[in-house]
Simulated assay, not measured.
Amino acid sequence: MKSLFKQHIEQTLPITEEDFEFIWSHFTQKSLKKHQFLVQEDDYIRSDYWVGKGLLKAYYNNDGKEHILQFAMEGWWISDYDAYFNQTPASINVNCLEDSELICLTLANREALCQSLPQMANFFRLKAQGGYVASQKRILSFLKNNAEERYHELTTLYPTLLQRVPKTLLASYIGVSRETLSRLGKKKLNE
Rank of each mutant, 00 (worst) to 15 (best):
S79Y: 00
Q119V: 05
L181I: 05
I45W: 12
F71R: 01
A112I: 02
T155N: 09
Q40L: 15
P14K: 10
Q119I: 08
T156C: 08
T88M: 06
N62T: 06
I9R: 01
F123K: 00
T168A: 09
L55D: 12
R110D: 12
Q11F: 01
R164G: 03
T28R: 13
T88F: 14
E111F: 13
N93D: 10
E148S: 04
L13R: 03
L157G: 08
E148Y: 07
Q87S: 13
R150M: 04
L38G: 08
V94S: 05
W77A: 00
P89Y: 15
I78K: 09
G52R: 00
Q36T: 07
V94Y: 02
L55P: 11
D99K: 00
Q115H: 07
E21Q: 11
Y84S: 09
N61G: 03
E17N: 11
T12Q: 15
A128M: 13
K6M: 09
E17I: 06
V51G: 11
E191Q: 09
N95V: 02
A121V: 02
N62C: 13
L107K: 10
S100K: 04
N190I: 10
S3R: 07
M120V: 12
K34R: 05
Y60T: 07
A83R: 13
Y60S: 04
P159N: 08
P14I: 10
F5Y: 15
F71V: 00
T106E: 14
G131M: 05
I15L: 14
L102R: 02
L117C: 15
R164M: 02
I15R: 12
M73H: 11
Y49K: 01
S31Y: 12
L184E: 14
H35L: 15
A134G: 07
S47P: 15
K187T: 10
I78S: 09
Q40T: 04
V39N: 03
K30W: 12
W77R: 01
Q7M: 12
A72P: 02
T155P: 01
M120N: 11
D43N: 11
K144I: 06
Y44S: 03
S91L: 14
L117I: 12
E149F: 15
I174N: 08
C114L: 01
D80S: 05
M120R: 07
E74K: 07
L161R: 06
S141Y: 10
Q129G: 00
Q87P: 05
W24V: 10
N62D: 13
V94P: 03
R125Q: 07
L184H: 10
A128I: 11
Q40I: 05
K144H: 13
Q70W: 08
